[in-house]
Nucleic acid binder design. Structure first.
Lengths: 149, 149
DNA sequence: TTTATATATTTGTCATACTAATTATTGGTA
DNA sequence: TACCAATAATTAGTATGACAAATATATAAA
């Protein structure tokens, strides 16, 4: 295998990740879900982990703080999330789903599973395990954080 | 495997793709490469395929036209690429590397192979083949274009 | 207690991605 | 010729992503 051939993993990875997001986003739009794919990820994690600070949430979804701030801004504007002042720390917030946010998650969850399944046609559970292993290995190879812990 | 577990592929894929791009971009910055990762992809393809219209180039790098227009704008501003009017079609351009662009590609190419190798530590050539197969399968599963061809 | 440092969040800037709409031009056809 | 549809590229608007810097507050150290 030449270096040339080898270096293509980054191209294929980027291309596929974009396609997956684009496909999902199109389905979200067709279904009038009223959220983006990244906004959904945030809603889903809030729904599963309850009250979270923005820092905790950012770590869960692997987005940096400025990006998360902006996503939360949009979700608040749409009325799905609220920022409740943290009782002990005035720098911080508890993020909560509103009633409307809870309904949204309940309504969308099954539809999103369906959308996600399409990508996996012609692939097996074994493929899934391999894929996870390789992705996680790459991530760890490049993650500087590990050196500091 | 629950649906819940299964649907994580999209999260892992997105997270890893971002990490790969971020790591490379950081190395590009440390090495004062003066281009972004996506700008490099465009330069590299221009170098390998010679005169191309923007539409042809967009198809090669799998970016949409507005995105490519802006990347080419930046590369022209930096003096690595030039837009030459197409002799037969006044709507279109031939894109060319400038002398400076050719030198840039020659200088960066080996450095970028080194950067790309890091991600692949602890993984085999066999893994690479599996990875390619799975990524391409996912891409094709979601690619509406195929239906029309 | 004052000072220094660390933490939580926000703001600013640039680059990329996607969609829709626009402009200019081309080619086919009545 | 005049019209119409297709094509090449650009512009506009919104969202995300990375990074640096700013702000406010909390905590630890002198």
């Amino acid at each position: 295998m030449t270096q040339e051939q080898f270096a293509k993993y980054s191209f294929l990875l980027d291309r596929t990740a974009r396609k997956v997001k684009q496909y999902a986003q199109q389905q979200f739009k067709d279904g009038a879900f009223d959220v983006t794919v990244d906004q959904w990820l945030v809603l889903k994690n809030l729904s599963e982990h309850g009250k979270l600070s923005q820092t905790e949430l950012a770590n869960l979804v692997f987005k940096d703080h400025p990006t998360l701030t902006r996503i939360v801004d949009l979700l608040c504007k749409k009325g799905y999330v609220e920022r409740v002042p943290h009782p002990q720390d005035r720098r911080s917030f508890h993020l909560n789903l509103t009633e409307s946010g809870v309904s949204k998650v309940t309504a969308l969850r099954p539809k999103i599973f369906e959308i996600r399944e399409k990508a996996w046609e012609n692939l097996s559970e074994q493929d899934f395990e391999e894929f996870k292993r390789i992705l996680n290995t790459i991530y760890q190879n490049l993650d500087g954080q590990l050196l500091e812990e």
